[in-house]
Design a protein around this nucleic acid. Structure first.
Lengths: 332, 332
DNA sequence: TACCTCTATTTGAACGTTCAAACCATTAGA
DNA sequence: TCTAATGGTTTGAACGTTCAAATAGAGGTA
């Protein structure tokens, strides 16, 4: 029993109206008389009609597809899959579907844009992992294609010219640092990533700000807070080494740029440690961590795009900054 | 500068041939004279032509889309995102794209099948998380729709009637158990899931088999190996409790059904522990674990589907069983 | 010469939808 | 009574592709 295809013409026949009237009921119900509308709706229901997106797309140029790159699982402790799940769910609610692609670097990603646009004409792209000198955004912007980035346009003139959604990393680490300050700690170390990564620098800045706000450090201990900071490649191994150094230097608590380095830091000794991203690892080992509101972020991405695609496009691009929340567990 | 659309007619004009000839060069090159073929190929190149999938689909009914459900991140320590990445990559190589959907249970997933088929007509579905009494497969099979499952059809008459790809969990736990036997252990415990989950029972059986093959247990210790087994809900907490009991009962090493319970088991004492799935957690904490060949599995799924869709369909459905590999780290 | 076969290419139609324009009543205004 | 405007509906065409059938040309055979 192959599922027989139901077309708009079948519905029209059933409801004794023309194709166009059915189309209107679906797309501009206001144009159709109440009574007719109801009759058509019933016919749609009875026949289980669903609009054929391929045909619609031919006529309108709209595919109702959002293209997203699926990330390489580098060290695997990433957070992207939760974002993607949220995105798929929110998109579906708005009548869109998510189509995936892979790419190794910006250049090949741009080539894939071209490919996808030719073949599937996605209505918009959702970009992740924004970074300094991101050429993807300018490529898309030049062609006036719709997109949002999950992540701020690091290094762009204030705010950036395109819509984005992001999580305020600095606010997160500031909260974490204050949490430790409240517990009586003053010499709070930070284990970060190499300078130059937008996300890393942002997370670092929250820690620095919170410490500054807490007033000068006790003179007797250390004259320079800078010594309470270490940069790592993000691995647990370097996290552990960094933690040992910081503890030796007098740190009594640690804020980390990621759960991965936090996990390493935990091996260095019984010092309070706070991670970032609230990955499964954090939950499993009881690591206090900062949780990104990922499904919320995904929903906002979809909203930004639907506004862009459907409503009269806003004069100013949407910029959404969400706050992470501290999930307190055993380690701090 | 909007990207101007290039249609098959543009290419035809450029190469001074008809639309159909261009189409033939792309789809049945054998029909076209060498010289013409080359001329058309060049025109395609120069204009950057890409076939419009919507138009093609209208005519052929083929969308070149594979639909996959994106899993809920339950405890988060799953492995699905790596599979999905591999699937996207392999699909792209074969000229397909992956389209995502979500669903909470089998019923709603079937409803989504219907939706997707009406709107996007995916050429095939890739199902994951197969289980006893899986109604999704029969729904698809009844309608003669193409699909593969990543996971065997548990509880179906030998082998199942539809194509599948899976990883041999029993072989994995057997390898793990032998690894511990080789290290001199005899009283090796198993921490599993509740009976009735296909995957869980399968993984358990490998452990049981390997122990059996090693000959009877030392009489003096325990008369019944059954005592060396515990079932849990899969959480780290229950894993830890189970491990304590097993160690108290004399176990000197533990094989676990998942990294999650293995992580718990590690807290119970300094006993060799082997997990399953080689999740990021395992890598981060140095847990020896069984690694599923996920990108290979994904590639096989794509191959099974392309055979089904493009070649003369095989008389017997493809069944592929892959071996996991033991990744040896600190814990065993 | 007439007829057939084979290869290479072209032509017309169709897939299912929506846009744009046309049509038809009905009501309102002069 | 005629014209104009309004609301509701229908009709024809078009999106870009491929299928099926048609055509043209070259070669072979009787």
């Amino acid at each position: 029993m192959m599922p027989e295809k139901v077309t708009i013409a079948d519905v029209a026949r059933r409801a004794s109206v023309s194709r166009q009237t059915v189309s209107n009921v679906l797309n501009s119900p206001g144009l159709v008389r109440e009574e007719t509308r109801e009759r058509v709706r019933q016919a749609v229901e009875e026949l289980g009609y669903r609009v054929n997106q391929a045909a619609r797309r031919m006529r309108t140029g709209r595919s109702r597809l959002l293209a997203v790159r699926i990330e390489q699982t580098q060290d695997g402790m990433n957070v992207f899959d939760r974002f993607l799940h949220g995105l798929t769910e929110s998109a579906a609610k708005a009548g869109y579907r998510v189509i995936l692609y892979t790419a190794d670097d910006d250049r090949s990603e741009i080539a894939t844009f071209d490919d996808l646009l030719g073949a599937y004409e996605p209505d918009a792209f959702v970009l992740t992992s924004t970074h300094y000198g991101d050429v993807r955004t300018s490529w898309l912007a030049e062609r006036e294609l719709a997109f949002v980035t999950f992540g701020r346009p690091w290094g762009m003139p204030e705010g950036g010219a395109h819509p984005w959604v992001d999580v305020d990393g600095a606010a997160g680490t500031a909260t974490a640092t204050r949490h430790l300050l409240d517990a009586g700690h003053r010499l709070i170390g930070f284990i970060g990533w190499p300078e130059g990564s937008g996300v890393g620098d942002d997370r670092r800045s929250g820690w620095a700000r919170a410490l500054e706000d807490a007033g000068p450090l006790p003179r007797t201990k250390l004259e320079d807070a800078g010594v309470l900071e270490r940069r790592t490649d993000g691995s647990a191994a370097e996290g552990e080494a960094a933690a040992r150094e910081l503890i030796a230097a007098g740190a009594t608590a640690l804020v980390c740029v990621s759960d991965s380095v936090a996990l390493g830091a935990l091996q260095a000794g019984p010092v309070p440690v706070i991670g970032f991203d609230d990955t499964p690892v954090a939950a499993a080992i009881g690591l206090t961590s900062l949780s990104q509101p990922l499904s919320d972020a995904a929903a906002r991405c979809v909203r930004v795009l639907t506004r862009l695609l459907e409503d009269d496009s806003p004069d100013k691009p949407d910029h959404v900054l969400l706050e992470p929340s501290l999930v307190i567990r055993r380690t701090a």
